[in-house]
Design a protein around this nucleic acid. Structure first.
Lengths: 142, 142
DNA sequence: GCCGGGATGGGAATCACTCTCAATCTACCG
DNA sequence: CGGTAGATTGAGAGTGATTCCCATCCCGGC
């Protein structure tokens, strides 16, 4: 068992893995495993669902992709290190706003550093009521 | 129908709901629905799993609890507004450090405000390698 | 070209969660 | 105080995502 510690290229570059990587690169947004699977198929490659899950997980482990859980309970993946941003989600209507905040990035790094942690990734999720839903709710509560 | 402070759809304070609320109040940490279910039972109340899920969801909707998705894919719940803190988790050994950061809280509020969102809750998760695991990893890569 | 071990894939298994629907309970009315 | 409407409950089936199993396949080295 050779240890597979090498960052990006540690995994064997099989046709399937390349296809999955390509599918991820093709989108800027978070995609569920199933979506990735579909995308790969539409590119003409045939890859098993199990393989998609496995590969995605391996990549997440290696820090090559970010994982996130959608409210629907699906895990979604996005290639790392590209226009890093967070989401502000309305808990009522699901509306989503993308936000970037260098403030948080800095804070995350500082905190991690303080505790001796390295290679830190972070997930920030803001959930609230968007302006419209707030209004509606107020009207209902009166 | 002059109900003054009851949440929108008028939740009835049934035995089951009170039991669930109590179970939530009893813990400071995030609990999965199943854990809440167990806790309720250990308190001597008999409540159906479906009811737990329904109630938890209703409470989340009403903003009375925070929801969060554990990496394991379970939804976990925590009563709102009590000793709010975040976690710094080691992705290798699972070690966890609790952190508080008023900086993030402020940022979250500011951003939410900026976009007209109200009643904003936030989840922040930092994942990295703790000092020890960093060291081991380095040793292994050589 | 041949070998060894990691990688693959299809389908069954698992797990968290939701739905269905009849029985039950609550609040409130007369 | 009994009656009624409608909210609530719970057991189990259903759903959908993800993982497991294992025989087969392929990559990379020799």
């Amino acid at each position: 068992m050779t240890d597979t510690d090498r960052p990006a290229t540690g995994l064997r570059p099989t046709r399937q893995r390349l296809a999955i990587t390509a599918a991820l690169q093709a989108s800027v947004d978070f995609q569920s495993a199933q979506e990735v699977h579909d995308a790969v198929r539409q590119n003409g490659e045939k890859v098993g669902l199990a393989t998609v899950y496995r590969t995605l997980q391996a990549m997440a482990d290696a820090g090559e992709v970010d994982v996130r859980h959608s409210p629907a309970g699906e895990a979604t993946y996005r290639r790392c290190s590209t226009s890093h941003h967070h989401h502000l989600v309305c808990r009522s209507c699901g509306r989503t706003v993308e936000i970037t905040g260098s403030a948080v990035e800095k804070w995350a790094h500082a905190v991690a550093d303080e505790h001796g942690f390295t290679e830190v990734a972070h997930t920030v999720e803001l959930v609230g009521l968007c302006a419209e839903c707030s209004r509606q709710q107020q009207a209902r509560t009166s």
